[in-house]
Amino acid sequence: MYRVSFFAILLAGLLHSAVAGELLKDGKIEGLEKGAAVAPSSTLSGYPMYGGGGGWTFLRSSTGEAGALGNAEPVKTASLDVEQIEPDGSWFAIMFLRVNASTVGTAQYTTGSPCKGNFTYVVDKSVRTDDNCQALKASSYKSGTSERVYLSLLFTHTASAGRRIFMELRLNPELLGFRGTTTDSWSAESVAQNPARQKFIERLKQFGTKLQEANQSAIRFDKPKDAYAGVPSYRTLMDVSEDLADGTFSQQFIGAVESVRYAPGYKAIAYSKWGGNRISWNSVDEEESEAVAASKALENCTKNKRTEGTPCVLYDLKAKQNLMKTVTTQ
C-alpha cells in the first residue's frame, strides 16, 4: 500500500486547482484545456465519476447523439476522456467515459452484444435489454518502432429512458509489473499457463467487479454521488514493497522491479538515482547463478547510467521491507 509518495504530493497540488462540479453546462463541455486537473467529485450530466484515487487530467471531450430505435427521439450524449500521467511523463491510466445527456420516454436499448467477443474474461450481469457487462481486452499501439500493450477494462451499462454509461479504463501493464508482454500474453489461454498473470487477472477481475457494481448504481435515476465510494484506486492492483513506497522511486522503476520478480531463473536489477525520483536501471534474468546475475546487472547499469547519477546499486528482490543492498561497482 502506498504511504506518503511523490504521487500523493503531486496529487495534493492538482486537487487544489482542479476543475470540479458539473462539467456539462448548457449541453456543452467548455473551458477545459488539455492537462487541466479534473476533481474526483466532478459530474458529467449529473453522473458521478470514478475518481481513480485522484489525479485525473483532462484529455478531450465531445457531445453528440446516439442512434434511436424506430421513430424514437435520439438520446443526447456527452463524452469525457481523462488520464493520469506519472511525473516522468509515462501514462498510467486513461478513462474514456460516455453517458446520456438526455432521457426519452420510449424504451431504448443497444442492439449489440457487448459481452460477446475475444476477451480475456467477461462478467455478464445483463438482464433482458438492460446491459450490464464487464470485459477485459488487451490491445496495442505503435510507439516509434515499438509495440506498446495496454489493458482495457470495458463496461457497458444501459437502462430504461435511454440511460447509458459506457466506460473504458485503459491501464499500462508495464507500470503494474508486466514489462515486455504482447497482446497474446493476455489471452485467456496464455494467462491460464502463467501463475503471475493469472493471479493479477483474478485481482483485476475483483477490482473490475467493484467498478461494474458502482456503474450499475450510478446509472440509477437519482445518480447517487457516492456510487464509487467503495472502489479503490487501480494502483492497489499491485502490491508495492514498503521500501519502494516512500516517494523516492518512480512508478516505472516499481513496475520494473515487480516484472523482474516474475522473471525466470537467476535475476537481478541494479539502479542509479538522478533528479529527484528519476531512476535509470538495468536488469537481467535466466542467468547461471545469483552472482553472475548481480555482476551483469551492475555492469550494465554502470555503463548506461547518467553522468550525474548516483553509483549503481542492486535492489534486493528478496526484500519486502526496508532491506536494500548497497553493493556498488568501482
Rank of each mutant, 00 (worst) to 15 (best):
A161S: 15
S152A: 14
E168T: 15
L136V: 03
K125N: 02
G180N: 09
Q193F: 08
E202P: 05
C133P: 04
V191H: 08
Y121R: 11
R128H: 11
T145P: 08
T129C: 04
C133L: 01
L211T: 00
S185H: 00
I165Y: 06
A161R: 15
Q193P: 06
S187F: 09
L153N: 13
E213W: 03
Q206V: 15
T181W: 00
R179T: 04
S190F: 01
E202H: 14
A138Y: 01
K210Y: 00
A135R: 14
K199P: 13
R197V: 00
R170L: 08
T183A: 10
K205N: 13
D131Q: 14
L154V: 10
S126L: 01
L136Y: 04
I165Q: 09
Q212I: 03
G144W: 00
K137Y: 06
N194V: 01
V122H: 08
M167N: 12
A196L: 07
F166R: 10
Y150G: 00
S140V: 07
L136M: 14
L153Q: 13
N194G: 04
T182E: 03
E213T: 05
K210M: 05
T183E: 11
Y121E: 04
Q134S: 14
S185M: 05
A161C: 04
T129Q: 12
A196T: 10
L154A: 04
R203N: 12
Q134R: 13
D124K: 07
F166W: 12
S126V: 08
S160D: 12
L153E: 05
R179W: 06
R170W: 00
E189P: 05
N215S: 11
R163F: 09
S126F: 01
Y150W: 02
S126A: 11
K142T: 10
A188P: 05
S139V: 15
A196V: 10
K142I: 03
Y121H: 12
K142Q: 10
